[in-house]
Design a protein around this nucleic acid. Structure first.
Lengths: 336, 336
DNA sequence: CCAGCCGATGTTTACGTAAACATCGACGGG
DNA sequence: CCCGTCGATGTTTACGTAAACATCGGCTGG
């Protein structure tokens, strides 16, 4: 910076002003400084900048393995949205989802060059985590349930599940079976709860749910069970991958979809439109989730609020992004 | 830090030594300092650290949208591997893959707190990019072709394609059709080239390739064409998503897989084992790709080598990670 | 015509850390 | 018994930037 100042014949302070786009600099001077910067290939040193300003312009994202579509899409949206606000995104992978690992990630956080943190985590571990977030670092949680400790942004999973079940009931099915996700997943729990509630409200019996682990393989295994249930004419699968395995199992057992059995998925992964048959499923707007997460932490930072912990910190609500039922060809009128 | 020093009754320099695990500190003193750090909740300021040390302990990853499985897996492996080396990973999303955007990402790089860069990019844009990497910032490229400017790590796509084609020929098929990826993709190009070469070497005619855009939808459209080709008994699809669409098209046109037509995919996405029928495909080890990328940049940093540009910079090779053919049920002996 | 004011620019300083150098005490060999 | 040496610790300084304050000229209005 000193070199630039010398070459442009100004003080380093003026260079700083130009570099930060401040007013109070003559157009002439500004041009001269810019020319000098180009000539010398000057790049502001972000470390010094961060040190001086006390902020890094960086968001940290804590996440488990990027294996689910939702996490990936959310992450992508976070990165894009953050970039739009002039923020970078630093990834904080937690390899093995154990309590210790999560705590570890949170503690490493303190040494990390990060102004705020977004947690994408759907496992129950967050609850018990000894979260020692450095003061001043704001937290927003996606796809989870943080109690009241942090704001949460999520898709309206209950609404989506309700729509799926009502769609099937509306097609004349007696009741709807459920291929659920793993027990330790908030998302799976919420979808299962909404499924049961919707059935109960409609006065229908709720068959015992079959449980998978989100994978297509587990969906296949569950499907083999469901295929042998004579009364099973409609299944709501907690995600598209399991729905895919379910379709294969039904096909192998000679039960036609949608003629004999109707299937609804959840997620609307791009491939689901090409399943056999194309899958009716619940679309989630992860881009919006990511965007809202970024907006959330940034606005919290501006307010400079406290980092939870306070007893009546308040204001920590859950923001729900609407879902949308996409009807394709895997559902039909009963006996259709 | 000063506070910690005061509380522990030592100088700030000693605190620094403890904080960095240096030798030359009595066990007694060390304990005292650590106690003081805990009591005050001290966290080293990474900005000041980076300023002083001249390095950020951070890797930048430039990537297009995280839409392909390969990119995601690679990114994940990079993040994990980097964490193992004490490095953080900063994401640099390039929203719209235009030449300008890529240039922009590279120029923003200079202001970013990053010691080295890994580029995950399969489009041809990299070639022409006016890459002005700040001096001292090392670059490694994944899943692309950087000419000789940068080291490249990639899966052995040619080998995988060759294995796929030979597998099909070995099953007695006269020739193998190809459902190719988009023209501007290096990966698609390499797979198509290997497919053609392998056929030629075997003395078989190469039918005109049908082109898709990686999506299942495009695979479906292409499949409708291929289904009408009477001589088409074996298809090598450039990725699993397109293979999925192809399977649907063949099914709709009444051509059975694998009895009438054998299909091989590429990528081995988790769902491919649950396709109808389970897909024979080429498995790629993206975790290894990511790991090698990190090793690559780190070792380049240690050497402190020049940032390309030098005429005889040399040593910029391509590292290939082996692929593996996974045989499932979508391929069978001709007429089988 | 001059006081005051404002806009443009320069000067000083502090951010938190770690390298380089300085100091100080203890211990051992001549 | 003294000096050299070495290990433990303290002191000084610089990293690159930007806020705060200082300065300096020109312009406006009484």
């Amino acid at each position: 910076m000193a070199d630039v100042a010398r070459l442009a014949g100004v003080s380093s302070q003026t260079v700083s002003r130009v570099s930060n786009g401040f007013a109070g600099v003559t157009e002439d001077t500004r041009r001269q400084v810019l020319a000098a910067m180009r000539e010398l290939g000057y790049r502001p040193n972000s470390a010094a900048r961060a040190l001086r300003r006390g902020e890094f312009r960086t968001l940290g994202v804590i996440t488990f393995s990027l294996s689910t579509m939702g996490n990936i899409r959310t992450l992508e949206a976070i990165a894009t949205s953050a970039a739009g606000h002039g923020y970078a995104v630093t990834l904080l992978p937690v390899a093995v989802p154990t309590q210790d690992e999560v705590n570890g990630a949170f503690s490493r956080l303190g040494e990390l060059a990060v102004d705020a943190v977004i947690v994408i985590m759907e496992i129950h571990l967050l609850d018990a985590a000894t979260v020692s977030v450095p003061p001043g670092v704001q937290v927003v949680v996606a796809d989870s349930d943080a109690g009241d400790r942090y704001p949460v942004v999520d898709t309206d999973q209950a609404g989506g599940a309700r729509d799926a079940v009502r769609h099937l009931l509306g097609l004349g099915h007696e009741t709807v079976w459920h291929l659920a996700g793993p027990e330790d997943s908030f998302a799976a729990q919420r979808r299962a709860d909404a499924w049961r509630t919707t059935l109960t409200e409609a006065g229908r019996p709720a068959p015992p749910p079959v449980r998978g682990d989100w994978s297509a393989q587990s969906g296949y295994r569950a499907g083999l069970l469901l295929a042998d249930e004579p009364g099973c004419t409609a299944v709501f699968a907690a995600n598209d991958q399991m729905a895919l395995g379910l379709l294969r199992a039904l096909h192998e057992r000679g039960r036609r979809v949608p003629e004999d059995v109707s299937v609804v998925g959840f997620d609307d992964i791009p491939e689901s439109a090409s399943f056999l048959p194309p899958l009716t499923t619940v679309h989630q707007d992860f881009a919006e989730v990511g965007r809202l997460c970024v907006e959330g932490v940034l606005s919290k930072m501006r307010e400079g609020g406290d980092t939870g912990g306070g007893s009546a910190a308040g204001g920590h609500g859950t923001t729900l992004v609407p879902t949308r039922l996409v009807v394709r060809q895997s559902t039909a009128r009963r006996g259709g």
